[in-house]
Design a protein around this nucleic acid. Structure first.
Lengths: 220, 220, 220, 220
DNA sequence: CATGAATGAGTCTTCATTCAT
DNA sequence: AATGAATGAAGACTCATTCAT
């Protein structure tokens, strides 16, 4: 199932910085052009190594791609764990989730775009399984958090919990996209007042406000 | 600005069905492989015409792509207008927005994936401007609706209106993606109970419930 | 079994001379360098067409090779039929076989070398089946001829018929190689008197003499 | 003339077994893929040494190849000497020649395939000279044997001696090929009865029978 | 106008050879 | 001497685009 080829032992052995240079170049290229249109020669050049070396690190373009996705997945996992362990109630934790999403998007903007592209039919055969594993972890995390929250009486029991989890993740994802890709960044700007740039915390507060108390005037 | 090449006059003159066949084939190919990896020869074959004809209809691959995006944009506009004109208050209209998003996603799943891919840096130079125009219309629509809603006292004035608009559109987009691409469809399934398939209306109701009254137990 | 890819319909449709130019160039290149070391770009150049055309005629290098082998096989078959239908007894027919072998070797020297190379392990997976089919026809032909010869009392019944058939074909093959490849041509010259070049008929006569009456002095 | 580069002094100095491991790996690889397609890195790996060492033993791929051919030639020479010195008349010696050919083919099957490939035009510039030297020795051997045989009245003086020598060597070569390469092995099987596997001695006897007394019924 | 064969620059991948350790 | 990582030229194959019919 998950035994598709990744990087070789040689790659493991080279200097950490060179590894990072290769991954960075690859992430950037894949993000900019998608899997098929990404150019291995360009990646090698950007990473400052030869094509030959590239192929001694990764048996194929596909293997390089999978390694990249793997790395991204591992970073996401770490971020997720951070959120779960954050102290406080569900609202504190979700606030933290949004903050983490934004910093992840800013730290690894290209990684994010690759995930965006993964939804493409053409790539599903390659990495769907891999990314779906990450999604599954996310789902479980939300479920745990919401179960706890409901048990401790913090959120209404009348709420459809699955839909709520879905909704929370959707918002987090779009926030993430909006801080990673130029396209979604521009789109976000269209919504926001351009005279004063809305700062992150303000947006998070406003979002949480809507989420907690709703927008209907019949609620306080 | 918007004077990039599109289809030729010849394309306008050919039979409506042939036009549609070409567009359909193109949409499918672009959705499956992205712009650069899409194959013009394959599109021609799928559309049942020759490559030569293809190039008498469109001066380049880029032109074909832009025409495709254009068509998609026009369909979206129409859908948007439908929503604005839908009778009722903001909640009725937004409910309608979600319903329209879902049916659009189902009717034009591939079109949706192309929009997903557009966020890619590599394509921004091509069509960002074009799609941003559509996004702008969406923003304006939400602003109008929310201004009206607030004026008529249906929604709390304490709500951050821009963030709310952004949030509403984010949810609508993710719902749309979740009904268009297999990847997002699968992801959605991870959130939902697999014993009984949640029907669309149920999800929409649950979403609106969260939106109107929030999830905090301190609200009724 | 035999459904491996060959040339495309496009190749069938182009002018006969162009087809031949392509096949000739391919045969020459494969003969000179073997399958793996043969250069498609060189073949295209030699044939006076573009690489792109090459690939519109043959889906792969392998397909081109198989087509080449096929053509060669068909020529061999025709030659074989000629021999069977040649009037006279087994000695007349075998004499004709040797003559045909030589003229085939001279007419298609490169084709012969390809067959020589086919014995290589590395190629067996490609074309062994194909060439073995031709070999099988040869075996059957010899068997028929020898059965007839024995029935009509032309050859001794004490002769081991299978070994004889094997021996006759071996000689014919070596004769063929010796007129096709430079290496075997040189080797043959080492055996023959260099003052006067032995002409074909002389060699054939001498061979038949040995075959018919043996070399032992105890036979007349 | 024969001053082409071979192995270095370093190679001479390393352990006998390591030398053999290198040669064995090289022979196998060259036999399987031909000169150009053979992979030096693979040979090194198979021999259990580093590529670097490989290049300290042989200045180039060509040098390795020539060394391989050299070694094969020397083994052949030894075999040839064995035959000449074998006691008995020409028939006893030729019988021994066939036996030696078969055991050589079985002991060094890959070496044989390399010789088969040598006939290729592309390689002639490399090793033709080398192998031709061996062939020359063979020719001389046959000539000596046949001259003796005729002098001692064992073979008919009416036989064309050069053609006979050529014929004897041709048969010996094909027998050798038929025991070395899978392709020729299969071909041989097509000729032989599959119910009972013909043993070597039987085939040799049958061959000699044909050779000595011919197949024409007009001889006893 | 329609066709589809032809083109060739561009891309992935391989491998003989070098060289720092 | 031995190692094996690094190099880059070469070769199989793809595809946007052109153009003769």
């Amino acid at each position: 199932m998950l035994d598709k080829k990744r990087h070789t032992l040689t790659f493991d052995r080279i200097a950490e910085e060179k590894q990072q240079a290769v991954i960075d170049a690859a992430v950037k290229e894949f993000a900019a052009n998608g899997f098929k249109a990404a150019n291995i020669n360009t990646i090698a050049e950007q990473a400052g190594i030869s094509v030959g070396s590239m192929y001694s690190y990764f048996p194929s373009k596909e293997a390089l791609f999978l390694t990249v996705i793997d790395r991204g997945g591992r970073i996401l996992q770490k971020a997720l764990k951070e959120v779960v362990e954050y102290p406080g109630d569900i609202f504190d934790k979700y606030e933290q989730m949004l903050r983490v999403s934004i910093s992840y998007a800013k730290a690894y903007p290209f990684m994010n775009q690759i995930y965006l592209e993964l939804s493409t039919e053409g790539l599903s055969h390659l990495a769907a399984e891999l990314t779906m594993k990450v999604e599954k972890m996310t789902v479980t995390t939300y479920e745990t958090l919401l179960a706890e929250a409901e048990a401790s009486g913090v959120i209404k029991s009348s709420t459809h919990r699955q839909v709520l989890a879905f909704c929370l993740d959707n918002i987090a994802m779009m926030i993430q996209f909006s801080h990673a890709s130029n396209y979604y960044k521009e789109r976000m700007q269209l919504f926001l007042p351009d005279d004063k740039v809305l700062d992150e915390q303000e947006m998070i507060d406003a979002l949480l406000q809507i989420l907690r108390f709703g927008i209907d005037t019949r609620t306080p």
